[in-house]
């Protein structure tokens, strides 16, 4: 079974077609990069897969469940980290962990074990009682990712998870992603940092609501006869007619 299966998925807002007949598949355990300029339709597509928005037409199955009829089942099997910060700044680190663990129905024992484990991996034991607001952005993002996969979902959706941090911090963040993928969690990530695109197993590039390219970063570089993803992206994005 594929982790994600999308066929001719479309979303229209009035006369505007935000997502225009896109089709792709994501394998279990894969790190799938979903690239595109602002306004290309990535977030809309991702929202449909998460059950936040109902497609206008087309088919999509996430973790084997239909997005139209089985969104409740999808919600139990996915994790989500939003573009804006997904934790509560006025709650302490452990309170955030407990809250999201509680929402996903973790038992008391599971929760306390997970909390210790998670703080240990992130090196945040000392910050257990710190308000999340006072953590540096990079730490917040790592914590936010760990909380998004606290219930060991089949798939985790990351919407521009590393906005605003430097490449070194991004690299550290990606180590967490690799660990999750190694455990079998499928990672679906949108980004517009091309160094991140290089870390993905496969990437798709969206332009004006359509998927214009889909392959591994190395294959794409070969096809476009360049040495970096930046040039691949610009070659495609130049065709865009939609502004921001």
């Amino acid at each position: 079974m594929k982790a994600i299966e999308v066929k001719q998925l479309t979303k229209r807002f009035g006369t505007f077609t935000a997502v225009d007949h896109i089709s792709f598949e994501v394998e279990p355990g894969e790190i799938f990069g979903f690239l595109g300029a602002n306004g290309a339709g990535k977030t809309t597509a991702m929202r449909m897969l998460c059950g936040l928005s109902i497609p206008t037409s087309g088919e999509a199955r996430v973790a084997g469940f239909d997005v139209y009829r089985e969104s409740e089942s999808i919600k139990r099997n996915i994790g989500y980290m939003s573009q804006k910060f997904s934790l509560y700044g006025d709650l302490k680190v452990w309170e955030n962990i407990r809250l999201f663990g509680g929402i996903y129905g973790l038992s008391k024992q599971q929760l306390s074990r997970k909390t210790d484990e998670l703080l240990d991996i992130l090196g945040l034991e000392k910050e257990r009682n710190t308000l999340v607001d006072s953590l540096p952005l990079g730490w917040k993002q790592k914590l936010s990712f760990s909380v998004a996969i606290i219930h060991e979902p089949k798939i985790v959706f990351l919407d521009e998870p590393t906005g605003g941090v430097d490449p070194v911090t991004r690299r550290q963040f990606w180590e967490l992603i690799y660990e999750a993928a190694a455990r079998g969690i499928t990672v679906f990530v949108t980004t517009h940092y091309m160094d991140e695109a290089e870390y993905c197993n496969r990437v798709s590039i969206m332009v004006d609501g359509k998927i214009e390219a889909l392959d591994s970063p190395s294959a794409l570089k070969r096809d476009f006869k360049t040495t970096n993803m930046n040039q691949v992206f610009h070659a495609l994005a130049r065709k865009a007619t939609r502004g921001e």
Partner: peptide, 13 residues
């Protein structure tokens, strides 16, 4: 505004 609502709506809550 903070974006936490989206996370809640994606959750089984």
């Amino acid at each position: 505004e903070m974006g936490t609502m989206e996370v809640l709506l994606v959750s089984p809550l």
